[in-house]
């Protein structure tokens, strides 16, 4: 027996608050409010288009594929970078328990107009990262009569990053990029890793140096980029892996690589990190200033500074674990 289908479709009269700005016309950004009847199924992009078509044709935003693959339409909704095309509005209104939602352009890039930002600075940073495969002739035949072979495991080292659509959401969410305009940002470093991790590539050294020079160690690992990426490409994870690769490739002379070494060795030996000495371990003799400042502060409060690893009850070395992991890794049996 068939039954008539009656879909459950709601509608809410919502206030859509949109940041506006046209250079040369406005002194600074301001907000316009639009009343829109938001229906079940309506995306942020549909809402923007409805406003443009029926209320204000000068509202300016980018959009192209409408299906989460081109990366044009990234904006911030209630502060979070999202793709307008794949973001349902009704659940956001419900999550924030409000009948108003705020739409702003991405951060960390200059606004060209309303919700449109200039992504060229990011593309330039990307271009400096040598973001392309340089043929490794041990793996890639000269002739087009043959393909190069690559195992699934080799592919899996970087395949997850190839989902990146260069939408700029991670760059917008990155506080390090806000604080340091020279910092390359998550997507560019992730792309650098994508190629460096490809066994068909033969360009690791120069690209690695480009990554180090453009801030490989300036990522704070806050992991917001993982949260906002609409394609789940986990840029912060790629940055960790690129760091490992740079150390494996012999770039030891960086504060970051010294920190990695210190953490790894201390935890193996003591189960804890020697925090009091970290400034000197990481930065060499100039780290003493920080240690002295910390010492003075502690003495002021009647605490005698330590130079040793501080341990709580029962804390021990993690050497056994390290040995076992080394054994597994040396056999290439790592299941990561």
């Amino acid at each position: 027996m068939s039954e008539t289908i009656t879909p459950d479709r709601k509608s809410i009269l919502a206030n859509i608050r949109i940041q506006r700005f046209t250079p040369g016309q406005h002194k600074s950004a301001f907000y316009d409010n639009f009343k829109v009847s938001v229906e079940t199924g309506m995306t942020v992009l549909e809402t923007l288009r409805l406003i443009k078509n029926t209320q204000d044709s000068s509202l300016t935003f980018r959009a192209f594929c409408r299906s989460k693959i081109c990366g044009s339409c990234a904006v911030r909704v209630n502060g979070k970078p999202v793709l307008a095309c794949s973001t349902q509005l009704m659940p956001i209104l419900e999550d924030f328990k409000k009948e108003s939602v705020t739409i702003q352009p991405l951060r960390n890039m200059p606004v060209l107009r309303d919700l449109v930002v200039d992504i060229d600075p990011v593309i330039e940073k990307l271009s400096k990262m040598h973001p392309y495969l340089m043929e490794n002739r041990d793996r890639i035949p000269e002739s087009l009569e043959q393909e190069s072979l690559m195992s699934r495991q080799e592919l899996s080292r970087f395949d997850y990053i190839t989902d990146c659509i260069l939408c700029g959401s991670c760059y917008s969410a990155c506080s390090a990029a806000s604080a340091d305009p020279k910092y390359a940002g998550p997507l560019t470093l992730a792309k650098a890793y994508r190629f460096s991790a490809d066994v068909r590539d033969d360009f690791k050294g120069e690209r690695m140096q480009a990554a180090v020079d453009q801030g490989l160690w300036s990522c704070a690992q806050c992991r917001k980029c993982i949260n906002v990426c609409p394609k789940d490409t986990r840029p912060a994870v790629s940055i960790q892996r690129m760091r490992k690769m740079s150390i494996d490739d012999g770039i030891h002379d960086t504060p970051g690589s010294r920190r990695a070494k210190a953490y790894t060795e201390d935890v193996a030996k003591y189960g804890q990190v020697n925090k009091p000495m970290l400034p000197v371990i990481v930065n060499g003799p100039k780290g003493w200033a920080a240690i002295e400042a910390a010492d003075n502060y502690l003495r002021k409060h009647g605490i005698e500074p330590e130079r040793q690893v501080c341990l709580l009850d029962g804390q021990n070395s993690a050497e056994q674990i390290y040995d076992k992991v080394k054994e597994i890794e040396s056999k290439g049996e790592n299941k990561i």
Binding site: L144, E147, M150, L155
Partner: peptide, 23 residues
């Protein structure tokens, strides 16, 4: 067709792979 697909592959296109590592 086979030539252009292989050229894409040689340029780094991440095709899925068979058990033997082919496209």
């Amino acid at each position: 067709a086979p030539m252009v697909v292989r050229e894409m592959e040689h340029w780094g296109c991440p095709f899925s792979r068979t058990d033997e590592g082919k496209i």
